[in-house]
């Protein structure tokens, strides 16, 4: 690991100001992506600004009919939260299959969303549920927030404060995890929202994306049969030592059917 200076932020504002003044500083929350990245010497930040445990980022509640999850909420908290389980059980279930228990004990909602790893789980839920990412200075709809591999609408000194999820009628997530890392080879989140069905796919492409053909089909008939014969274009999907793009395209269709079957079974 390269040298860096550690700074414990006392408030969100202090963290934001520090980031603005130090362009090579990075935020540290759970550290479940950042610290392994540093250990592999894949990044060399000047400073780590620790926002872990800040009260301003804590809290899970339903307000005005929407589920608000603080950016500092650990995956474990989301998975076990009675509030989340009641409002959006699929989100709690998703949080419970991120990484492994040790990762879930430290990793945060805000960190996962801001990092936008193409194989992370949360982006699929945020996009399918049409959630809003709230930062210190604005509210960003999910459709504008995710911008491809590790890219988001966030400014370099902008900090995610919470994610606000409209409560769907029904929702489910199905993923095919990489057996060693737990990351999604393909993960599909299907949500029946007040304004229609949305299907978001993670793990398969260079970033989370909506599968609009499936959305249209499921909008008419929310059952696995509606997806029969539908396929995503393999061109442009990820291909690596773990799977070809054709295999991932097939996984997307299978995971989508599994998610819809879970919804239909409820």
């Amino acid at each position: 690991m390269y040298q860096f200076h550690y700074v414990k932020a006392k408030s969100l504002q202090e963290a934001g100001e520090f980031l603005a003044a130090h362009p090579d500083a990075k935020l540290l929350a759970g550290g479940m992506t950042l610290i392994p990245t540093l250990k592999a010497r894949l990044a060399q930040p000047s400073h780590l600004v620790d926002v872990g445990g800040l009260a301003e980022l804590a809290g899970i509640e339903v307000k005005d009919g929407k589920l608000r999850v603080g950016a500092g909420a650990r995956h474990r908290e989301v998975a076990m939260s009675a509030v989340v389980r009641k409002a959006i059980p699929a989100l709690a279930e998703l949080a419970g299959v991120i990484g492994d228990p040790q990762v879930r004990n430290l990793g945060t909602m805000g960190g996962s969303v801001a990092n936008n790893d193409p194989a992370a789980d949360y982006p699929a839920a945020v996009l399918a549920l049409g959630a809003t990412v709230v930062t210190m200075r604005r509210e960003i709809p999910a459709d504008d927030f995710f911008q491809g591999m590790f890219a988001t609408a966030l400014e370099p000194d902008e900090i995610v404060v919470r994610v606000v999820f409209p409560v769907p009628k029904r929702a489910a997530y199905a993923k095919f995890p990489h057996p060693a890392s737990g990351y999604a080879m393909a993960g599909v989140f299907v949500a029946e929202n007040a304004d229609g069905v949305r299907v978001a796919v993670t793990g398969a492409g260079p970033g989370v994306f909506r599968w609009q053909e499936a959305e249209a089909a499921l909008g008419k008939n929310l059952s696995p049969a509606a997806l029969e014969g539908l396929t995503v274009e393999a061109e442009g999907l990820n291909e690596d030592m773990h799977a070809t793009r054709e295999y991932r395209a097939n996984l997307v269709a299978v995971m989508a059917k599994r998610a819809v079957a879970k919804i239909a079974g409820k």
Binding site: G31, M32, I35, D50, R76, D100
Partner: peptide
């Protein structure tokens, strides 16, 4: 391991299991 995967370094911090190879000592202050 060097990749945060093996879990051999698991300890409890404030009652919860974490991988101590993926946490800074200062974070445990």
């Amino acid at each position: 391991c060097d990749t945060s995967q093996c879990g051999c370094c698991t300890v409890h911090v404030n009652g919860q299991a974490v991988k101590s190879c993926s946490m800074l000592a200062v974070q445990a202050n």
